[in-house]
Simulated scan of single mutants.
Amino acid sequence: MNSFTGGPDAIDEIERTAREWVAAEQLRDLVAIFEGQIPPSGTREALAWLDEFSAREWDFRGGRERSAMRLRDFEPGVAATITRSLRGLGLTGRSTPARDRYDRMLILGGGAPACFCRPAFASALIAGGLEVGGVAALGSDRPLRQVEREFLAAAGAAGRTEAEAIEAGARAAFGTAGAEVICAGRGEPATRANTADTYDAWRAADPGGHETILIVTTDIYVPFQHLDAVRKLGLASACSIETIGVPAGFELPNGYRVSFTLAHYLQEVRSAIRSLRRLLAAVDGDGTIADSR
Rank of each mutant, 00 (worst) to 15 (best):
Ala158Leu: 01
Ala168Cys: 01
Gly209Val: 01
Phe34Asn: 10
Ala112Lys: 02
Ala68Phe: 08
Thr198Pro: 04
Gly133Phe: 03
Gln37Asn: 15
Ile182Glu: 05
Ala236Gly: 12
Gly234Gln: 09
Met69Asn: 07
Val22Ile: 01
Ala177Phe: 07
Glu242His: 09
Asp286Leu: 01
Glu20Asp: 15
Ala173Thr: 07
Gly62Thr: 05
Gly187Thr: 13
Asp59Val: 01
Arg118Ile: 02
Thr161Gly: 10
Ala196Thr: 01
Arg192Val: 09
Ala196Leu: 02
Leu279Val: 03
Arg64Ile: 00
Glu180Thr: 14
Leu144Ala: 08
Asp103His: 10
Ser140Pro: 05
Asp51His: 13
Ile38Glu: 13
Gly129Pro: 11
Thr191Ile: 04
Val135Cys: 03
Gly129Met: 10
Ala290Met: 04
Glu164Asp: 07
Ala290Thr: 02
Arg16Trp: 03
Cys115His: 02
Ala193His: 06
Leu27Gly: 11
Arg61Trp: 01
Asp103Thr: 05
Ala136Asp: 08
Tyr221Arg: 12
His210Val: 08
Asp100Lys: 14
Arg101Asp: 14
Asp228Arg: 11
Val78Lys: 08
Leu235Val: 06
Gly63Ile: 03
Leu27Ile: 04
Thr191Asp: 14
Gly77Trp: 06
Phe74Ile: 05
Arg270Met: 11
Glu180Val: 10
Ala229Tyr: 01
Lys232Pro: 03
Phe151Met: 06
Arg87Trp: 04
Glu150Thr: 06
Ala48Asn: 13
Glu148Trp: 00
Trp49Ile: 02
Ile38Trp: 08
Leu144Thr: 04
Ala98Lys: 12
Leu89Cys: 05
Gly90Ala: 08
Arg64Ala: 13
Ile289Arg: 07
Ala23Val: 01
Arg72Ile: 12
Val246Thr: 13
Thr161Asp: 13
Arg66Gly: 15
Ser95Leu: 00
Thr92Tyr: 07
Gln26Ser: 14
Ala55Cys: 08
Arg72Pro: 14
Pro253Trp: 06
Ser54Tyr: 03
Leu138Asn: 07
Asn254Arg: 05
Thr198Ile: 00
Glu251Ser: 15
Gly109Ala: 09
Thr288Arg: 12
Ala137Asn: 05
Pro39Asn: 10
Ala46Ser: 15
Leu279Pro: 10
Arg70Tyr: 04
Gly129Gln: 12
Thr217Met: 03
Arg99Gly: 13
Glu148Ser: 02
Thr198Gln: 10
Ala205Asp: 04
His264Ser: 14
Asp228Asn: 11
Cys239Arg: 14
Gly187Leu: 11
Leu279Cys: 07
Ala23Glu: 15
Gly7Trp: 02
Thr81Lys: 09
Arg145Asn: 11
His264Phe: 09
Gly159Arg: 01
Tyr221His: 15
Ala163Val: 00
Arg171Ser: 06
Phe53Ser: 06
Ala272Met: 09
Gly178Thr: 04
Tyr256Met: 03
Gly139Asn: 05
Asp141Lys: 03
Ala168Met: 02
